[in-house]
Design a protein around this nucleic acid. Structure first.
Lengths: 186, 186
DNA sequence: AACAGTATTGACTAATCAGTCGGTTTACTC
DNA sequence: GAGTAAACCGACTGATTAGTCAATACTGTT
């Protein structure tokens, strides 16, 4: 792991635990095993640091989400694959999920960073618009559909965080996905 | 409005805009039209202040949610009434919703405050458990059902925040509720 | 081996801010 | 109107901390 990565990873953990402003840069540096000067060599300001943490989490999430989706044949199995990927991501990278949960609406994240983050979702928007054209999904405002899916996903992650074993429970996964699918399919 | 309320209300607004730590107590006092000393006369610490803001938002939300629910006859209409109350609350008290969104997972809110907040939901848990016993709702972990409803609600609020007019659109409300109801009813 | 560019260090500083405190005003009681 | 308790004020302070900087250590190139 490079020093840059060590810093990002320590920052993620500490921001989650103490919050942005209650985490001194000196502590981040210490936990990452570097000097404060080094931290500011890689990140001009503390703000830039948290913005980079944010983008790293979003990247990681999107990468995981699309694994194997292209190989699936039907719309239903594509969506199912992506959905389950996301659930696995949330359980496996708890810290990343909690960070996004906590800081997505925080003023520490700049509007331009948030915009950058949104762009990583473009592929999903694309898929949804296509699905509507192909008359697979109910026809509605794509923005609304996105919110629906994300809200659904959030509910499941939140629950799985308390009961991670449920993720291995086939009937739970099936039920959870069916509720989502019935809500969005035509 | 009492000075205490002025302080709470200024704090809510400023915390949303700048975040907890980037809002000096001196600014809160100024916006509330009182001296810093007065702020600390009502709230021992800044932490106590934000915790009180949190509880006030939760109170407000619950009060709104249950308006007229008792008068409704069927389970379906009770749930629908509560659900639409919540949507109205979210659109009307945007600041309260955004505050809860941003600070529910923040370490500035103490565990005991969060517990206190959860107690205000007890009535809802009660209603859900009853509904399961009466075989109206699908039988599942009540925790899961709560998350499902809350996730659903969040998705709709998030969308309505961008398009508040939709709340007056009868077919939108009907569709939105139907999706929820189909997901939870037996 | 000389040079240059980059990485790394941590003591230091200038600014910020939560909370204090001594004093004043207001509201209420007898 | 005297007495008193609570509300209110805002200048002040002690502690904290983001970011600097001058010095040192690497790394690769000619």
């Amino acid at each position: 792991m490079t020093k840059r990565e060590q810093i990002l990873s320590a920052a993620l953990r500490l921001f989650n635990t103490y919050g942005f402003d209650k985490t001194p840069t000196s502590l981040i540096a210490k936990e990452a095993g570097v000097a404060t000067g080094t931290l500011f060599h890689y990140f001009a300001t503390k703000e830039e640091l948290i913005n980079q943490v944010y983008l790293k989490c979003k990247d990681n999430m999107m990468t995981q989400a699309f694994k194997g989706v292209a190989e699936e044949k039907t719309y239903r199995s594509k969506v199912k694959r992506a959905y389950e990927n996301m659930l696995h991501w949330g359980v496996k990278y708890k810290d990343d999920y909690l960070f996004l949960q906590q800081f997505s609406n925080s003023p520490s994240i700049s509007e331009s960073t948030r915009e950058e983050g949104r762009m990583r979702f473009e592929a999903i928007y694309q898929m949804i618009r296509q699905g509507m054209e192909d008359e697979i999904f109910k026809s509605m405002d794509p923005e609304y559909l996105i919110e629906l899916i994300y809200g659904f996903f959030g509910a499941n992650i939140q629950y799985l965080m308390a009961f991670p074993d449920k993720l291995e429970d086939h009937s739970f996964r099936e039920f959870s996905f069916t509720v989502l699918w019935d809500a969005i399919k035509r």
